[in-house]
Design a protein around this nucleic acid. Sequence first.
DNA 1: AACATACGCTTACGGTGTAAGTTTATCAAT
DNA 2: ATTGATAAACTTACACCGTAAGCGTATGTT
Lengths: 227, 227
Amino acid sequence: MPAKSVQRPEGRARLNRKRVLQTAIRLADEEGIEKLSMRRLGVGLGVEAMSLYNHVSNKEDLLNGMIDALYSEIELPSHDDDWKTALRKRSVSVRDVLLRHPWANGLMDSGTSPGPGTLRHHDRVLGTFRNGGFSLAMTAHAFSALDSYVYGYAKQEKALPFDTEEQAAVMASAMLAQLPASEYPYLYELMGKHVLRPGYNYADEFSFGLDLVLDALERERDLEGAD
Amino acid sequence: MPAKSVQRPEGRARLNRKRVLQTAIRLADEEGIEKLSMRRLGVGLGVEAMSLYNHVSNKEDLLNGMIDALYSEIELPSHDDDWKTALRKRSVSVRDVLLRHPWANGLMDSGTSPGPGTLRHHDRVLGTFRNGGFSLAMTAHAFSALDSYVYGYAKQEKALPFDTEEQAAVMASAMLAQLPASEYPYLYELMGKHVLRPGYNYADEFSFGLDLVLDALERERDLEGAD
DNA sequence: AACATACGCTTACGGTGTAAGTTTATCAAT
DNA sequence: ATTGATAAACTTACACCGTAAGCGTATGTT
């Protein structure tokens, strides 16, 4: 009889950092990040809260680890596509991940030093610009501009008080009914003539801005001399 | 003898929502948002924690109120400037406010319905696009793209593990020393040949991206027919 | 002067992150 | 297989959190 399996006949496998992080991510997705406490995470893993501290140095470390794990979920820019296609796909993937894990965006401005998944991701994005003919200085510009847009969009999308087209319509109607048109004429116009149009979906704005930025970056690259 | 002044010879003036919000903003600036508790805010106002609930319905309401108050700190787009200048100044002002109150960015994705300061601000931005010759649909695109960039940039800036040029140099040197160059070649290049250059300052990237977006939006406006 | 209301206070409860110390499980070397 | 070392899970405890409930007093109105 194998000794290793007999030792833990009932309880789950031994804890490790990966299981802790993955369960934490799942709990944050299912119940919201504000409900994720060390005690609840312990319950989710069949373990006491303090046991987690053997694999995570404190809650901040836990949250940073969750973020770094998410970076590995993002599709890296492909070597096979041209730079614009590769970065477009990557940017869509970033947004998808942030939609799947809406709590993540707010944790990414902690100013702590990045983990290996984060570094790998950034390295590949930088490389895609460089191999796409961007000078080093222009790569720095482009990296900042593109990611500012992508993460900023995800943030705006989450901040909206509606998700679906129906909710948007309800919200817009409520605002039209309650807000004084004289005070907010342009919001009034936007709600009445744009948001309430059938087929309106804020999510469509992502592509517009993404192409706007990518095309503008291409022009900047071409205006520069070679590296 | 004026009755009103004699009633409170020692204690501070009576509490009101505005004083609560302003003190909360000051405390968040000085000690960090994570240190802002109802009890500490009470101390800062010379009052017990529970007294705050007469002016704020709960902590979430407090935080939303703080955000809305900050929107009034942002310089509204001027009617006198052309649209691009007006929105450029406004965008710079947004970034300034978010630098002054670094905790605010993370609170703005709560998905709650916006306060009057927020609505006023958005209305004026929309109006600037409309009066600048943007169609309604293009205004919606432009609003989303511009604010995604501006708020996203502020977020990226805060997420960086360094603030000043010196800190950036220290950080870059540390990364060069610790990271395997073979694994992160492009990060390596960026740190060694760009960040470590004298005069490097990430803050300079803001203007590049801002002009990139504004110029690209102008193009899009011109490509469209009239509204 | 009397009342109604608004507001500040006290107390209490269930929750949080985590420091400190103890017990148990695992693995390496004999 | 036994021992000893190490890693990891547990128990207890503490200071702090948001806020519900209820009380007393100050304020403003009649």
